[in-house]
Design a protein around this nucleic acid. Structure first.
Lengths: 326, 326
DNA sequence: CCACTTTTTGCAAACGTTTACAAATACATT
DNA sequence: AATGTATTTGTAAACGTTTGCAAAAAGTGG
């Protein structure tokens, strides 16, 4: 006999309503003894709630949909961890969708899928969202948040992220404080994130009345391989320090520098953005502007569920040994 | 007007059955013109299928439940990536549950939750499963697979994993082939995984008629910090080479060795297990027995959905520069 | 024992789909 | 025009819950 509420009701000689109440533990009403007896029978029959039926009837899903649309990055693991943890605490389920790598058509498709699941809200990790998808979300009245990405041109797109301008500024000022003046920024990209960091860098340099040589700005893709390649680009421009777009970029720089027998941090200081454990592994260890991705995940859930405004997650400078005081 | 099949039917002047058929694209029957017209209306109304209702009526969920119950490890990201990719190809959804860190009670709870979602099957990443949970799964007739962990005592628990004995053996033989005889194994744990690798190591050593000094076997937790600590344990035992339980263990060993001014690989060769990008970052780069976690994820989905038997995912030796030929 | 309140349970509709089966329509053949 | 076949659509039940409301049972006090 299939373990359904109906069958349990039959076995217990009560109505389905009573069984439903007993099993949802809302011991609001219901005589403790019947509740216990019913739960006992359910247990024996191997009953498991049918979530689909439950959702359909109750209209509550307690589900957060997460869309990952850029897998290259390393940090989504930490964000997901934070999301899973907080969702668990708040008794919500997490359903994860992959939307490829900044593939707009696929993102549209994925957003639609997420919508089908009647989620409470959608969390979009580190992906650019376009008008096409926004329209769908808005039409469906589905709350969403961008995570680890934002666009100051569109404040109506709520987000949870580190403050990239502040990151750029903070990194630059740290180097300035340590006596550097010829400071480069390498491995950022042309996305909003990269441009925001660049802006912060420029602002800090300007504020310190330092002029920027255009060669000091090198674009990249945040990858390790790319970091190694970029090393060549920054040589010969008299830089004493650089801001690396990511831990991996920095690790690549170190690798290349070591190959070129450049001694770090004596001949070049590096501060990198992210602050994952990679910073501990390199030699020298990497001083970083550390982002708290786990916390970003945690707060995203709260933010979404409580309909809160956009939020910056604080970053912090983690001093290790890749910056020389000159 | 709520965008439901019923309302679309009303708007189009047809029955719900017709709408249902039009929207599920199964253009089996149905006049192309009506189908098109209905889809048009659905589009305008902002219709999104209600998955709960659909699942309830059709009894098909196309959902794979994934349970992560050990977050410390780094590789679950790659496994998940593989799962997401393959699930997408096969038109399945992935719902991810976190079960804490080898917390048995919570795992039971999580298994029950997964069951409620009427998933097609359950994928358990890297977690020990106990009789309590097995009983639940069996009673519910829910197919499941262990990923990246297995127990040779229980062949009925199907799995997709690397062959740990082979890994231990392969690593050992590689070192032997490179002239090493005093070979240690450091950073493995007491779990089945650790013991399987240890067994492989012992078997290879014995086969090569090499005797093992008990001090050459050092337990650990696969972590970076732990790797650094373990370095002290292996000093003074004349080892010329070690097998590190993980990339991080190896990275820790390198860090400590560098601090102690031990030159690698001249004074100590290292081969590590896993082969993540960390192996490229360290100096020297780490030769590894590389596991293909992405593929593990991909195959897990196929394996589960096609009801296939347990499967080992091949590993390979990736030569870098942490092993000296002596 | 009655009237009244409180606690406990049941009835039945609703949730939004899917689908077996039947009915209607269109088309082809003679 | 009649018949048969193929195509297209509709009817209505079913999926397994939840829940507003009503009914029944139990408890209370006089």
């Amino acid at each position: 006999m299939k373990p359904t509420i109906k069958n349990i009701a039959k076995a217990a000689g009560v109505s389905t309503a009573t069984v439903s109440r007993a099993l949802s533990n809302k011991d609001d009403v219901l005589k403790p003894s019947t509740a216990k007896r019913i739960r006992q029978i359910a247990q024996e029959m191997g009953y498991h709630k049918n979530v689909a039926a439950s959702q359909l009837a109750s209209h509550i899903t307690n589900t957060i949909a997460v869309i990952i649309n850029y897998h290259q990055t390393n940090f989504w693991k930490d964000i997901i961890n934070g999301i899973l943890q907080r969702a668990y605490e708040l008794n919500h389920k997490v359903i994860i969708f992959s939307a490829g790598n900044n593939d707009s058509a696929r993102l549209t498709e994925t957003v639609n899928e997420a919508l089908e699941h009647q989620a409470t809200g959608i969390l979009l990790i580190s992906g650019k969202i376009e008008p096409a998808q926004l329209k769908i979300l808005d039409k469906a009245r589905m709350p969403y948040r961008l995570i680890s990405i934002y666009d100051q041109q569109h404040p109506e797109q709520r987000f949870i992220s580190s403050d990239n301008v502040a990151i750029g500024e903070k990194a630059t000022n740290y180097l300035i404080t340590h006596g550097h003046q010829k400071i480069g920024i390498v491995g950022i990209d042309h996305s909003s994130t990269g441009q925001q960091r660049l802006f912060g860098y420029q602002r800090a340099m300007t504020a310190a009345q330092l002029t920027i040589n255009p060669h000091w700005i090198c674009y990249g893709d945040y990858g390790y391989q790319n970091g190694q390649e970029l090393f060549e680009k920054i040589e010969g421009h008299e830089l004493t320090a650089v801001i690396a777009g990511s831990d991996l970029t920095a690790a690549g720089l170190i690798k290349a520098a070591t190959k070129h027998h450049i001694h770090l941090p004596d001949q070049l200081s590096i501060i990198c953005i992210d602050g994952s454990m990679i910073c501990e592994i390199t030699n020298p260890t990497l001083t970083s502007v550390t982002q708290d991705f786990y916390q970003m995940g945690v707060k995203s859930v709260d933010n979404l569920l409580n309909d809160e405004p956009s939020l910056f997650i604080p970053t912090s400078i983690h001093e290790r040994s890749s910056v020389k005081n000159i």
